[in-house]
Design a protein around this nucleic acid. Structure first.
Lengths: 133, 133
DNA sequence: TATAGTGTATTAGGTAAGTAATACACAGAT
DNA sequence: ATCTGTGTATTACTTACCTAATACACTATA
């Protein structure tokens, strides 16, 4: 459940926190009902202000990935499978968007980009020995 | 050679200029030796401050896409064709990589990612009114 | 040298974003 | 009630970024 903050990456701290926790939830490392590290614990560990942690948690709550129990703490929400799919789709959408913008910017044809997708996709999957999907 | 600025898109004006000129160079609409529209002309046409244009041009110069001739103007650089291709490939590769990593992380199939890409690609191109390859 | 055309260095104002300090509110246990 | 543990609303500081106003420097030409 540990993760790291890079204070010099230029990416805001609260966004680094959001991404890492979101990813842990999406991949199942954090399961429904698990309590998030408390604001004060996490702020002490990462050496940032509690409000920065709180801000990150608030975004995760707005995404309905976590639920707040007042006075007690924050817990991973029991997410409907299809809602989880929606979240994944949105994240994937953003990632694909970056590729689309680059392709259009350079006037690269649809087919050429698709070939690249296929190539990279297969490289990765062979690396991690995945045989599914 | 005309292009448009959207003052309400949230994307900085100088970046909009960079993208459109970069694209014109990458796709060959602007060829080596062509003079860029002068700072004052472009600033008058787009109704923005000359310094904003100058800033955009400076970034393009740093990218070595254009060259400055002091007191005369800015011209499209004579880029080796294969270097141009290399640059494009590298940038596109990075962009696609982000999407592929996200997809694999979330266990999304290759076909679904490609479908999504095609959808976004076509939407984006229709938005900017592109009709080329 | 004067003039008119280039681009830009410097400076400053406006805005937004990120972070932090403080004080506060809620829940549970004693 | 009180204490200790939760998260947070409010406020403010700092920084970065975008844009603009002004004045300047270089080049060509006459």
């Amino acid at each position: 459940m540990l993760f790291e903050i890079d204070h010099h990456s230029g990416v805001p701290i609260y966004q680094q926190i959001i991404r890492q926790i979101r990813r842990q939830i999406m991949t199942g490392c954090l399961k429904a009902g698990d309590q998030l590290e408390t604001v004060r614990d996490l702020s002490a560990r990462l050496k940032v202000n509690p409000m920065t942690i709180s801000k990150a948690y608030s975004f995760l709550e707005a995404e309905k990935l976590v639920e707040r129990k007042r006075g007690i703490g924050l817990f991973v929400a029991d997410i409907e499978q299809n809602q989880k799919e929606q979240t994944k789709d949105r994240l994937l959408d953003d990632a694909v968007n970056i590729a689309v913008i680059a392709a259009i910017q350079f006037g690269i044809s649809e087919n050429k980009v698709i070939e690249l997708f296929i190539k990279q996709y297969r490289e990765y999957r062979s690396q991690i020995g995945d045989r599914n999907g």
